[in-house]
Write a protein that binds this DNA or RNA. Structure first.
Length: 156
DNA sequence: GCCAACGTTGGC
DNA sequence: GCCAACGTTGGC
């Protein structure tokens, strides 16, 4: 089976690493971008690995690693008018947005900051730099391995 | 189907 | 908090 790698962004105020570590598995709701949605709906497979990336943070960067444990299914937060991610164009008969479930694997401490990533010349082709606003994006196997080396990973 | 206006993301 | 980049919307 072909193993894929991903980077998924979250703002720490929206969903923190501490919460993820406690819950172990979370659904990745609220993605409202077509390219990111298509990756989750069509390409992500159970067993794929992902970096958990803090955006809009001080600093921004990779703080943990996880894996996909459930493949794309409708993002039900879009159906709920009370929810901040509500989208009237999406309903359960014809869902517009999708999500996956991700399980916590291990933490990276200290953070691998965006600056660290940019300074690593072997990573200069990362999609992160070319498409800085894409919140769910693939990571190449080579890049994945380099980042594994770059970080200090902690299993708790 | 083009493209200007608008809204959002996210680094700084 | 500013603002550049860029995805999306909507008028035509």
């Amino acid at each position: 089976m072909n193993q894929n790698y991903w980077l998924m962004k979250v703002e720490p105020e929206a969903y923190s690493l501490e919460t993820w570590k406690k819950e172990k598995v979370t659904y990745w709701d609220g993605v409202r971008n077509f390219m990111a949605r298509n990756f989750m709906r069509d390409t992500m497979k159970k067993g794929d690995q992902m970096f958990f990336y803090y955006s809009n943070s001080h600093p921004s960067g990779i703080v943990a690693q996880g894996q996909i444990v459930r493949e794309g299914y409708p993002d039900f937060t879009a159906f709920d008018p009370q929810n901040i991610h509500f989208d009237p164009q999406s309903d359960s008969q014809n869902p517009k947005w999708y999500m996956v479930d991700v399980q916590y694997v291990k933490e990276c401490r200290p953070i691998i900051s965006l600056k660290n990533l940019k300074e690593c010349k072997d990573l200069k082709n990362m999609m992160l730099f070319r498409m800085p606003r894409l919140s769910v994006q693939p990571v190449g196997e080579k890049e994945w391995k380099i980042i594994q080396q770059l970080g200090h990973w902690i299993n708790e």
